[in-house]
């Protein structure tokens, strides 16, 4: 670091960079890593059941587990095709 930037110190401190990077990656990994192992299997079975009645594909069902304080919310989002099969 040059003498000038020492006096006019404009460089962001590395510790705050570290904190920012960590808070992003930890928040991201908390939601993806802490999802229970059964979610993919649940999604697969839901598709099997629903596709018996309605024509849905793999991408039409989204299963997510969210945690808010002490409450876990299992969110199942199914997009039905516009014209259901008869």
């Amino acid at each position: 670091m040059s003498l000038l930037s020492y006096f006019f110190g404009s460089k962001p401190k590395t510790a705050s960079v570290a904190k920012e990077r960590l808070s992003l990656i930890i928040a991201h990994e908390r939601t993806s890593n802490r999802a229970p192992d059964f979610l993919p299997a649940l999604q697969k079975e839901l598709i099997e059941v629903i596709s018996k009645y309605v024509n849905v594909g793999l991408d039409d069902i989204k299963v997510q587990l969210e945690k808010q304080d002490n409450c876990e919310i299992l969110e199942v989002n199914i997009t039905l095709p516009e014209q259901p099969q008869k």
């Binding site: 401190k13 510790a15 705050s16 904190k19 960590l22 930890i26």
Partner: peptide, 17 residues
């Protein structure tokens, strides 16, 4: 090093974890 902004402070680490 914490004082000089080179190291995460214990408060930062605790806040993150």
């Amino acid at each position: 090093r914490v004082e000089e902004g080179e190291m995460l402070s214990y408060k930062d680490v605790q806040e993150l974890l």
